[in-house]
Nucleic acid binder design. Structure first.
Lengths: 221, 221
DNA sequence: ATCTTGAAAATCATCGATTATGGTGAAACC
DNA sequence: GGTTTCACCATAATCGATGATTTTCAAGAT
């Protein structure tokens, strides 16, 4: 995804800070899906002026977390069954694609990265879709050496993450770790058939679970 | 892609105008790949203030036409063999994906749209990658009913378009129309094997041609 | 000669204020 | 009673100016 820049120790610009803060707020549902974003209010809340606020929001538009309509302002991207369905399908396709490329092109660093991420996942609480979970998926996609594709995957994971948070998805009902391990093993075994298939199944299962929870919390608008 | 908003007759905001203008400038190479973007200069040239300029550039970052580095400013996205390779591969994968989905889900409107776009292409000069050419590819992807995927495809076409313009690719050496027609026919025949394969081949051929021309004009930085 | 150092200059980032636009509700009209 | 018009208000868009950081470049040291 459009990563949070911030050269090491340097102070990140307010715009960059805002981008992170607002992203988190949207992913957590603190800014509710579909909600109109009042620039003046938000400006006061975060104690910044309009310029960095608008710019941060513009960046979030690129992540599909915010919508913009010319001269009408910004809105938190709505959620819906259709949007969730597209997100799931796309994420499944894209991550599988990235994994295929990674299996073909990944080097030793990639393999170690995957194993390291898997290890961290072992004792993670795994409440639906944790940071570690996201890191694992990112590690899988990293081997392809295709930065644009990685960005796409990142953003899609974030979109799913929002559904997980907003719907309070309790991922621990599944043995997610077993799924992750199987994927990692197939990936490192360079099984170009099995690994992407498992990954797709894993993602689609999450998507199906989320879809099942969605009607209960169907968006107000 | 992040489409140019402009509600029908309403005057588009300066930001939206700038976004179009600058996109064209970058695609045409008027703003050279890799070049640093001096905000103050650009502000004067276009006779606007910094706010809409920065916002327009931020939007172009989302289209991968501009890069941004915190506190260092904006740069025209560089071109390179590696970047072209990824663009080609991604575009090929993504458009094939979209076409597969369209073949599965496309309705009558989609079919007519494809045929209409093809017809327009028949007598187009087709200098490499014309507007009509882009419209044809957009029409193919439209049937999938997946707006995010369409966006992705749009952006990738634009990235290719820049190489075409910057390298002055003379597309008419190929019988592009024949390729397009074959793709359209296979798509409408709902041939889920043939159509995506032809499309991929078509795109990869363009990518290969561009790659062959690239070394001659290798970027200065 | 090359590597620091430290202003000065350039340029990015941010602000507060102003202007333009879209939405809304009350009055006027059918 | 229902619809249209218009003025007002909330808010988005833009501006010009100010503050902060990076870059540049030249002088001095090694």
């Amino acid at each position: 995804m459009t990563l949070d820049r911030a050269g090491a120790g340097a102070t990140p610009s307010r715009t960059a800070q805002l981008q992170s803060t607002l992203r988190r707020a949207i992913l957590d549902g603190a800014l509710a899906p579909g909600q109109r974003i009042n620039l003046d209010d938000l400006r006061r809340v975060h104690d910044v002026s309009l310029s960095p606020l608008r710019e941060a929001l513009s960046r979030l538009v690129a992540e599909n977390l915010v919508q913009f309509r010319d001269r009408r302002g910004f809105f938190v991207a709505p959620i819906s069954a259709a949007h969730l369905a597209e997100t799931t399908r796309l994420r499944s396709d894209q991550e599988a694609l990235a994994l295929s490329h990674a299996i073909a092109a990944g080097d030793l660093d990639w393999e170690s990265g995957v194993l390291a991420a898997l290890h961290r996942l072992r004792r993670a609480p795994d409440d639906g879709l944790s940071e570690d979970d996201m890191a694992f998926h990112a590690a899988l996609a990293a081997g392809a050496g295709m930065p644009m594709l990685q960005d796409i995957c990142s953003r899609l994971v974030n979109l799913h993450l929002r559904y997980v948070r907003v719907l309070a998805y309790p991922g621990n009902r599944r043995d997610a770790f077993a799924e992750h391990r199987a994927i990692a093993e197939a990936a490192i075994a360079r099984d170009a058939e099995l690994a992407p298939t498992l990954l797709k199944r894993h993602i689609e299962r999450t998507g199906a679970d989320l879809a099942a929870m969605l009607p209960a919390a169907e968006p107000p608008r």
